[in-house]
């Protein structure tokens, strides 16, 4: 009786063992697949790791190159501005000279008229002299020269406005450098995680850190008056709220000021 019970237990155990072998037969191909997958993925991960290392080592160079671009455009802009400034000074001198010439013509006319009044008989000769002096003709040439100078001055102003694109692009580039720095930080931490077991030491390849306070990531080179007009309206409104008489700045007012100030 006791023997029969033991044999049943043995068969039961053998049944379990058979189930285990059946399960094993099923699981082995799965393990094989996992091993194949690991065999494939490890070189791939190594490749990713190497790519990250490679990219991380190149990032600081890219960031420094961006800084070099900013510095170079700063120098070039400054040089152009110096030239424009020098041109503007020359224009002012020419304008003053032309103004003196116009005064000279006026004085000549006054002198000729005074002479005509003193010596009435000479009026015919004076007319001939006036004609020879070509005062009207020369004066109209001076006036047209003044118009050309005014146009050059306006062009110079437009150049200075256009040159401000340097400041806008510098801010955009600073924003890019800020992003690059963030990417490099993430990649560096990934690399440290990847290479923990191997006693990996991260190379000191820091990108220049950019304080997010120093740039406007949305800086745009926009010469339309739309934003300025909003600013003017808000200032006007603020002044009204403060019971101050805020006057909207018109282009006419600005032009008037510059006509008066020369």
């Amino acid at each position: 009786m006791e023997n029969k019970l033991s044999m049943e237990q043995v068969f039961e155990k053998l049944g379990d063992l058979k189930q285990f072998f059946i399960f094993g037969q099923k699981i082995v191909p799965l393990f094989k697949k996992i091993i194949d997958f690991m065999t494939d993925i490890v070189p791939l991960l190594e490749n990713v790791n190497n790519s990250i290392q490679d990219t991380t080592s190149k990032i600081p160079k890219a960031a420094h190159q961006i800084n070099s671009v900013t510095s170079a455009t700063e120098i070039a802009t400054s040089e152009i501005l110096d030239i424009v400034d020098s041109m503007s000074n020359d224009m002012t001198k020419i304008k003053n000279e032309l103004s003196d010439l116009k005064n000279g013509f006026l004085n000549q006319r006054v002198a000729l008229d005074a002479f005509a009044q003193k010596v009435p008989a000479s009026s015919e000769t004076l007319e001939e002299l006036k004609s020879n002096l070509s005062i009207d003709e020369l004066e109209s040439k001076v006036i047209s020269l003044e118009e050309v100078i005014n146009k050059i001055e306006l062009d110079a102003t437009n150049i200075t406005i256009s040159l401000q694109v340097q400041d806008i692009t510098a801010q955009q580039l600073a924003s890019v450098n800020h992003l690059i720095h963030s990417v490099q930080e993430k990649l560096s931490s990934l690399m440290v995680d990847f290479n923990k077991q191997e006693g990996f030491v991260l190379l000191d390849t820091e990108t220049p850190k950019v304080d997010p306070k120093v740039f406007n990531p949305n800086a745009k080179y926009d010469r339309s008056e739309a934003h300025q007009s909003v600013a003017d309206q808000l200032i006007e409104q603020a002044k009204r709220n403060n019971n101050d008489n805020g006057n909207k700045t018109s282009q006419e007012e600005i032009d008037k000021l510059f006509r008066n100030n020369g």
Partner: peptide, 8 residues
């Protein structure tokens, strides 16, 4: 607002 007109 930048870019600005120097006259302004």
């Amino acid at each position: 607002i930048k870019p600005f007109d120097p006259k302004r």
